[in-house]
Amino acid sequence: MATEAKGEEAGLVFHPMDQFIIKPLFGDGAITWYTPTNAALWMGFAVIAVIVLMLLGSSKRSIIPSRSQSVAELAYGFIYKMVEDICGKEGVKYFPYIMTLFMFIVCANFLGLIPTAFTPTSHFAVTVVLAMAVFLTVTILGFVKNGAGFLSLFWVSSAPLALRPILAIIELISYFVRPVSHSIRLAGNVMAGHAVIKVFAGFAVITLVSPVSVVAITAMYGLEVLVSFIQAYVFTILTCVYLKDALHPHH
């Protein structure tokens, strides 16, 4: 990636967004829908990471877990407990789906932290698909499970009658903003972190500032490690909350 600043101290050149450019892996042609790109490559790495962690890690089936097996069990227990706590017993049916989202996001985020890596989750295309999948699933599921009763989600029965139509409009808007904030939050956080690291890297051109820049990059990197996990966690927990709304729409 041609993100390194040009080296003239006079003109600082930042290309914080160049790291997100999607390029074909082979050749330099146009990107059609099936072209293997760097995005596809790193999604593939995420899939491999999930397989290594969850499948190979647990392959020994030992009662006393090895290191990788205990990580797999930890991830399983973490998400399982989250789904069970928030959605209740009926939600456990959708646990593999939520686990898929979590594992993909967390692996993609962490792999994206490797220097020169590409982060698929920094692209709105990816997160919008993830969020829309959740949104559509939850909406369809809500109507299938509760029929028209799902609309009671917008009719706040605990509020005074006069306020209810206004609240209904607000609830409706907030319901349709969900996929937007759901997707933008993840992509925005990941993109912001990576872009800020690049900006600090751009400052490293100036000899006097470069030590500060290196320290700042290190600090941001630590923050990004945290953010990578927390955003995956938040995405998953919000999915659970939305799913709970579909399963039990009554406030």
Partner: peptide, 18 residues
Amino acid sequence: GNQIFWLVIALIAIYFVL
């Protein structure tokens, strides 16, 4: 389109493996 295509493949792969 490209990203969505590969993302769907990745998600389906992860879903089945899991």
